[in-house]
Amino acid sequence: MEETTIEIVKSSGEKAKFSIQKLRGSLKHSGADDALVEQIVGTVRDELYQGISTREIYNRAFALLKKSKSVFASKYKLKKAIYELGPTGFPFERFVAAILEYSGYKTEVGKIMQGICVSHEIDVFAEKNGSASIVECKFHGEEGRNCNVKVPLYIHSRYRDVKQQWEKSKHKTKKLDRGGVVTNTRFTKDAIQYSNCVGLNLLSWDFPKDNGLKDRIDRLGLYPITVSQLLTNREKQFLLSRDVVLCRQLAKDKFYMDHLGISETRKKKILSEIELICST
């Protein structure tokens, strides 16, 4: 039976009807085949009870995936792995820049740009095909904290200040024509409505539909190193401090592993896991 009357409690404290389709979709995103997906869905469904939290459901599905194949569990924990990029938010900015670079943009993180009124530190400055964009990254280290309308209001005012100064500088050969906000959580309806009205680009975990952060990561295979099941938290933080935010970066620049002070055997296991994540 696909329908269920079970009510679950989200991280925000909100109650909602449990969706088997959502669970099935998130499991498929991990790369698990249909048989394994249905097996896990069946097990989780049998263990549901009224008022179960989304965290409990996630933990159970994650444990079942990990038992079957570690790489599936790594991809399934993507959302949690992005929270682990914190606490400063800077690795998230590097992560967003990396995603843009793999989409053909040339990027600069933490660029100081002069506005008409004041100077601004821009999280990510991106250029492509003769046009430039400024992107602000709003990182939240915990679930349930969404971006309300105040965020795009603030970012759009900064964008306009920078744009006015940019247009006064006649030596500029590129056109500054886009401002945007990227968050690892979600935007409220008012935030989306306002941004659509003023032409501000938004990117969140699941917005725009079918082209949100999770979709782009899956499509491009740009998984953060925090998805790894084998790297310790200390090792992840060491790599992040050296601007290694993607599994692809670590697979390409293996010399970073030499600075972790680990055995050759463990190094090979970690690289094998990382390459598997990048290739599937």
Rank of each mutant, 00 (worst) to 15 (best):
E3T: 12
I6W: 15
S11Y: 15
K17W: 14
I20N: 07
K22Q: 15
R24H: 14
S26R: 14
K28E: 15
A35V: 14
V41L: 06
Q50E: 15
Q50Y: 10
Y58I: 00
F62T: 06
K67H: 14
S74E: 14
S74M: 06
E84G: 01
E84P: 01
G89W: 15
F92L: 12
F92S: 07
G104V: 10
K111G: 03
I112S: 09
G115W: 06
E121T: 09
V124P: 01
F125P: 03
A126L: 14
I134S: 11
E136D: 12
E136A: 03
F139D: 03
F139Q: 04
G141S: 10
E142H: 09
E143K: 07
G144V: 00
R145N: 12
Y159L: 04
V162C: 10
S169I: 12
K170Y: 07
T183S: 04
K189E: 13
A191R: 00
A191D: 06
V198A: 02
G212R: 03
D215Y: 06
L220F: 15
Y223F: 12
I225T: 07
Q229C: 02
L231T: 10
E235R: 00
E235I: 07
L240I: 06
L246K: 06
L246F: 08
C247D: 14
L250Y: 14
A251S: 06
K268E: 15
L271V: 03
S272H: 06
S272Q: 08
S272L: 03
I277A: 10
C278A: 05
T280L: 05
